[in-house]
Structures are given as structure tokens and as C-alpha cells.
Design a protein around this nucleic acid. Structure first.
Lengths: 192, 192
DNA sequence: TGGTACATGTAACATGTTACATGATTAG
DNA sequence: CTAATCATGTAACATGTTACATGTACCA
């Protein structure tokens, strides 16, 4: 029933439920770990989608265990809905990068402030790259033992290449932007 | 008035209005061209944000010209709100990449289907890179004539580096994924 | 004179975010 | 005992998407 197409967030929850029943909390943790680099999910959404999918008959709740954990399990309809969703051509990706928005209006901002923003973002990307790289090493071991699929490896590889590209971009920014050497247009004076 | 912080989409419209009054339609076109690679905006949003900002006194509408074009102009309050928004630390970027979501559940999908998705996405990225590169050449000329700012150049450079990284990722995908050489787990048979 | 691109807007809905309320369990 | 973490959920709101309605101006 409810033939309405699944949204990607809900679908990913169904995907995770293929490896056995789990609670909203667990699904949230799993999602952050497995698809976090390219798909963000909030706790609030998880519970909302689970409730909606239960109403739609795609999952069923078990008796709640310790701490009120309420494990959900896939139904046949859920499996079918997931398979239908998975076989549809994925839509193009979306990027929303507020730092770039700020930078593209750089002429209206003091160059020192912009340089601070740039540096603080650069640092978080350095950290993220390190995290992804250590996650890859871990995956690598599991994979050599034949315990993991190539898909998780490929998507993690995307994260790594993305972070590297971002860092290279930071490193190639002109010094005026990256270090705020010269005054910008509006906020710090006029150039003529 | 209405001290509520501006959202990034509305703020970008204010940013564009700094170079003179323009209509919703023009703003939409400008946004697509100038910030499209990292900030998507729909037509519907533009009109909604403009209406809201007019109510909040950040912009004022002029007499409508030919074709009912309704040019909006920045007010002092609008300028101030924009400056406040611009000086805030930008939040981290968000990526939503449905193809990666699909791929991470690749074990449940026929490898031929996945390979088709991959190839069709790869092609659109090839095209986008070409577009960005030709935009850069155009910008380069204007810039050498001293007519453009370094900021637009830097943000476009991001787009180019991003697209290149994505293409390299596609090229390094294992053949099983990229070309669908072997059967996947669920949909096309069992392995072990 | 008819089609295409221009142009504005609304309605309905889907999705995402933030803040809060509530309580259980565990570790120190 | 008490603070941190685990765990679930709701409410209110912000933002984004899709579909539609309406009409104008330009060009072949």
C-alpha cells in the first residue's frame, strides 16, 4: 500500500534494516558511520520516518527491550519498497557550501575575517580527511579478510578524494584571500 | 526590525542586489550562474524570499516595468542585515549524493543497473567540468582586463577541482562496480 | 498567428532543523 | 549518588520541491 515513492533518507533506513532489526538510535549511529560523508540525517528525522514507515506497513516494531529500545524489523512490503527505490536512477548530487557563498561576496567583507573563516574550515577538512583515511585502513583489513563489500570501500574513497580536492583548493587560494593580505573593497577601504 | 537571522538563500539575493535593483527572474538567473555550482535555488524560493524580505523592510519594490518585471532595491536595513550575515562564521558544507547512497547498497542491486547509473552520472560530470572550464576561460579574460574580482574566480576553481576529483573517483572505481562485470549479492544470485 | 522564452506568483507538500521534554542505565 | 550517555519522542518552524495558473513579449 501507500505506493508513494520513498525518500532517500527513509530508504537508507530500510537498507540498514536488511542486516537485522534495530532501533532508531542504532540506525542513526549506523547512518552517520556508513553514509555520513555524503548523506546527513538528524535524529528527529529518523524517528519521524520510522513512525511513518510503520504506519505504511514497511516495518514493524517489536516489544521494546532495555531502555525502551524499540527494535524495528523489515516487512515484505518494506523489502519490496526498498528494492523499487534502489532501482530508480539516482538524482544529481547537491552541494551547499556556505563558505563559498561567503567567499563569493568577499568584496563586501573584511579580508581578515574571510581569512579566518577560510583557515578554520581548512582545519576541519584536514581532520575529516584523517578520519576517513583511518576508517579506510580499518576497512581495508576487514576487506582483506573477505568480510566486507567493495561498495562501502568505494563510497569511502569518494569521501577521501573529495576532502583531498578541497584541501588542494584551499592551498591554491591566492594569498590575498587565504591570508587576508590586502584590504577588500567595501569593508576595509577603497582602492579606486 | 525583524532581527531574526537571514537564511543563506535570502542573503545571497541581498548580495546580488548590491550591484543594483533587479527582478526576481534576474536574481534567479544570476544565482544560477554565480553560485549554482555550490548553492542551488529554485524559482519558487526566490519569490518567497523576496516577498518576505520586502515585508521585513530589507528591500523595496519599484514600479513594475515591461512584462510586469518588478525590480527590487536594497534598503539600508537590507544592507545592514546582509553585512551582519556575511560576518558570521559559515556553517559546514553539506553534500547529498544519491548515487553514493545507491552504491552503498550495491549488494542489493543488480550490477548491470548500478553500472548504468554510474556511467550516466559520469557523463554528466564530464559535461559539467567542461562548462566550468569554459566559464573559467571567459572569467580569465575579464579578469586580465582588471574587470573582475578574485572571489568569483576562486569559487569557480572549487567547482573545477570538485568535478575533477569526482571524475577521478569514477575512473578508479573497481571494474566490477563500474562495468558490472560480476553478479551482485542479492539480486543476481549467491556467491557463497 | 502561433510557439517559445520570459516573468510572476500561489498552493500543497516534503524534508530538514532546532529546541525541548522525559526518563533509563551505566560508570565513577 | 550523580553526571554522562543512551534513548525516544514531539512541536514548531524553516527550507526546499513540484505542480500549476496566468499572462507578456518576441520571433519566425
Amino acid at each position: 500500500m501507500t505506493q508513494r515513492t520513498l525518500n532517500a533518507t527513509a530508504a537508507s533506513l530500510l537498507g540498514f534494516l536488511h542486516s537485522g532489526p534495530s532501533s532508531g538510535w542504532d540506525l542513526l549511529i549506523t547512518a552517520r558511520r556508513r553514509i555520513g560523508p555524503f548523506w546527513s540525517i538528524t535524529q528527529s528525522q529518523v524517528y519521524r520516518e520510522l513512525a511513518a514507515m510503520e504506519r505504511a506497513g514497511l516495518i514493524t516494531a517489536h516489544q521494546s527491550g532495555p531502555r525502551d529500545r524499540r527494535p524495528y524489523e523489515l516487512t515484505g512490503a518494506g523489502r519490496a519498497a526498498f528494492a523499487r527505490w534502489l532501482a530508480r536512477e539516482p538524482s544529481p548530487e547537491q552541494i551547499r557550501f556556505p563558505l563559498l557563498l561567503t567567499m563569493s561576496f568577499g568584496a563586501h567583507l573584511s579580508s581578515e575575517t574571510l581569512a579566518e573563516f577560510v583557515e578554520s574550515h581548512r582545519r576541519t577538512h584536514v581532520e575529516r580527511l584523517a578520519e576517513y583515511e583511518s576508517a579506510r585502513e580499518a576497512l581495508n583489513e576487514v576487506m582483506q579478510a573477505g568480510m566486507a563489500d567493495a561498495y562501502g570501500f568505494a563510497t569511502l574513497d569518494f569521501g577521501i578524494r573529495y576532502e583531498r580536492a578541497v584541501l588542494e583548493w584551499f592551498e591554491h587560494l591566492p594569498a590575498r584571500i587565504r591570508e587576508g593580505r590586502e584590504p577588500a573593497d567595501d569593508a576595509a577601504g577603497t582602492r579606486g
